[in-house]
Amino acid sequence: MQRVNMIMAESPGLITICLLGYLLSAECTVFLDHENANKILNRPKRYNSGKLEEFVQGNLERECMEEKCSFEEAREVFENTERTTEFWKQYVDGDQCESNPCLNGGSCKDDINSYECWCPFGFEGKNCELDVTCNIKNGRCEQFCKNSADNKVVCSCTEGYRLAENQKSCEPAVPFPCGRVSVSQTSKLTRAETVFPDVDYVNSTEAETILDNITQSTQSFNDFTRVVGGEDAKPGQFPWQVVLNGKVDAFCGGSIVNEKWIVTAAHCVETGVKITVVAGEHNIEETEHTEQKRNVIRIIPHHNYNAAINKYNHDIALLELDEPLVLNSYVTPICIADKEYTNIFLKFGSGYVSGWGRVFHKGRSALVLQYLRVPLVDRATCLRSTKFTIYNNMFCAGFHEGGRDSCQGDSGGPHVTEVEGTSFLTGIISWGEECAMKGKYGIYTKVSRYVNWIKEKTKLT
């Protein structure tokens, strides 16, 4: 034993070699072989497995989906700052455009905790909710729209109204504003409101030439003092309507412009014939205590009207009353817009006519005020429907199939267009061939041609 100890002390290297040989010859039971080890760690190889990531292109799944990435790591994937920024906006807080917040056709661009709407022409605001041009839906104005110097929408209202708090709607500024039905039992019968379409306001006024200088022999019209197929109006439903009495009662109609003036057809009036105007009328054979009678003290036909040349060209006249009318729910003026808007309103496509005229061709006159909704007829169809001249200051309205029309005794009465609950004068009943005849239409004086003249002559002093 002493000898062994001496050998170990003198030859430590020998001992180490012996131990190493023993270990190498022993069977290893701690580690699995290569094949079995792979069965336990069965993990798919990654895209760049075996390579240094710093030297390969980034992978979106590896960089940002398996674990949260930084902007720089995302930049490695896209290799483009702009594309990385677009991805980053949604990656950080989701897609803010998912709810489609942009209105009126706006395009949404996502941002971090926010979004941006790219608005089409005519709109602005956070969600493109603000109209900035009158060309689109009248700028959301209830009545009139004008573009300011910086191309912003400025709404306005006709006389007797003021802008509401929203700067879009119009509200009454006087007790009985024009064009409004205020009798409670008839307010439910107000005709369907007309909503502004998209309009090209630059070209809204037709490029028409008034044929002022045409000389033409007097034409022989049949029954051209021209509501057939209409309905009984309720008291106060058309408070701007008046009836004219002269040699015979209810020979023509008219509309209240203001307390002192009536507008009617020029062919209705004769110099030297006494005319009485009755406002607030409903049943011409009954006294309903809503009527107001006034005498006409002055007749002003349009300066281009000449019955000797043509009885229905420039067929418009103004009547001055001896005493002002007292405005109330049964006696209310009709609204008159400017030339541009009167023309736009007419193009809405349908209007209402009213009167006490004959209820059928050569038949009896109506006792109760009649009204009828009539569609506008395109000019080409209008011209083809008659052998008589249709001037540019006239328009056609009615039904091709016949059966409904204005008729004798309705002449001078109103053709009105309702705009968001307020009625505007767009025409004056003038003439036609018979009444409600198939293929024939009622012919009306186009008020847009005469609004400046009306307003100039009827100013209240």
Rank of each mutant, 00 (worst) to 15 (best):
R379P: 13
T276H: 06
V30L: 14
V257P: 00
L20P: 01
E270D: 06
H34C: 05
F176G: 02
I262R: 01
E288G: 05
F238D: 01
G105P: 02
I210Y: 05
A9I: 07
Y47H: 15
M65N: 06
K362M: 09
N283Q: 09
I390H: 10
L41C: 04
A233P: 09
Q167R: 05
S169I: 05
N5D: 07
N452W: 05
Q96D: 14
A250T: 07
R294F: 01
E434V: 11
N38Q: 15
L325E: 01
C102R: 00
E124H: 14
I17Q: 01
C134N: 03
I390W: 08
K188C: 05
K45C: 05
G280D: 01
R83M: 06
E124T: 13
I309F: 11
E286L: 10
E165G: 10
S182H: 11
N38A: 10
D150Y: 07
D150T: 13
E142L: 04
F251A: 10
E288D: 13
T287G: 09
A37W: 04
Q241C: 05
E86C: 04
N222Q: 09
F176V: 07
E231D: 09
G179C: 01
N151H: 09
A436N: 14
N203I: 07
Q219F: 08
A250P: 03
S350T: 12
V4Y: 06
E259M: 05
D95C: 04
L24S: 04
V257D: 00
L346M: 06
E288A: 07
N100W: 08
L318D: 00
I256C: 01
T225N: 11
E418P: 11
M437I: 12
V153I: 11
Y91D: 07
A380C: 07
E98R: 14
A37N: 05
N393G: 13
V154H: 08
E434H: 13
E420Y: 12
G253F: 07
C396P: 02
E420V: 11
H282V: 11
M437E: 13
P101G: 03
F360E: 13
S114M: 05
H400G: 09
M8R: 13
K51A: 15
G349W: 06
T194G: 12
T264R: 01
E159F: 06
K293M: 06
V228K: 08
I7Q: 14
N313K: 11
T381F: 13
N48Y: 10
L163C: 02
S354D: 01
N166D: 09
E420T: 13
S11K: 15
T215W: 05
N283V: 07
C141K: 01
K89H: 10
V181Q: 15
I344L: 11
L319W: 02
S385A: 12
L327F: 14
V451M: 03
P197I: 08
Q143M: 07
I40Y: 15
D410I: 10
Q370P: 03
F55G: 08
V183D: 07
V30A: 09
M6V: 10
G230N: 09
G21L: 15
G94C: 04
E323N: 08
S156A: 11
E116S: 13
E286S: 10
C28Y: 01
I297E: 03
N283I: 08
T445H: 06
D200L: 07
K247I: 10
T158M: 13
K438G: 14
Q167V: 05
S148D: 08
C117F: 00
S99A: 15
C435D: 04
G105Q: 14
E76P: 14
Y441R: 03
Q90E: 06
G427L: 00
A173C: 05
L52I: 15
V296S: 00
E193H: 09
